[in-house]
């Protein structure tokens, strides 16, 4: 049984901001399907009473004192930018207030 089809892959690709050619999407769907089929074995584990592990470290997060440290020089901050004007990054126009 197929767990993920090209349509689902396209939905996921959109979420991940990837653009797949139709052939690529079909190949990805087949690969992901095989992997999801394999991981299905986890379903046989009884995990009703099992707490999830997000971190192997059984500690609390450390805290840093509220002290201002040196920032990068602005010209360094934008030095790697594909497009910048002055010390600001530039991107294609975004419709104000609209999240894409």
């Amino acid at each position: 049984m197929s767990r993920i089809g090209p349509g689902e892959v396209e939905r996921i690709a959109k979420l991940a901001r990837l653009r797949l050619e139709p052939a690529e999407a079909a190949a990805m769907a087949a690969d992901l399907d095989a992997v999801l089929d394999y991981v299905e074995q986890l379903a046989e584990l009884d995990t009703r009473e099992v707490a999830p592990t997000s971190h192997v470290t059984a500690l609390a997060t450390p805290l840093r004192e509220d002290r201002v440290a040196a920032s990068l020089a602005p010209e360094v901050a934008v030095a790697n930018a594909p497009a910048a004007e002055g010390s600001a990054f530039e991107v294609p126009p975004v419709l104000e207030g609209v999240e894409e």
Binding site: I4, I12, A16, M28, L32, T47, A51, T53
Partner: peptide, 25 residues
């Protein structure tokens, strides 16, 4: 793609949380 899928709405518990529980075991 795989990671986005397993975190996406409706699949988180079946895949991601399940894997975290298996990690505990």
């Amino acid at each position: 793609l795989l990671g986005t899928f397993v975190l996406s709405a409706g699949y988180y518990d079946a895949y991601y949380r399940k894997a975290q529980q298996a990690r505990t075991l």
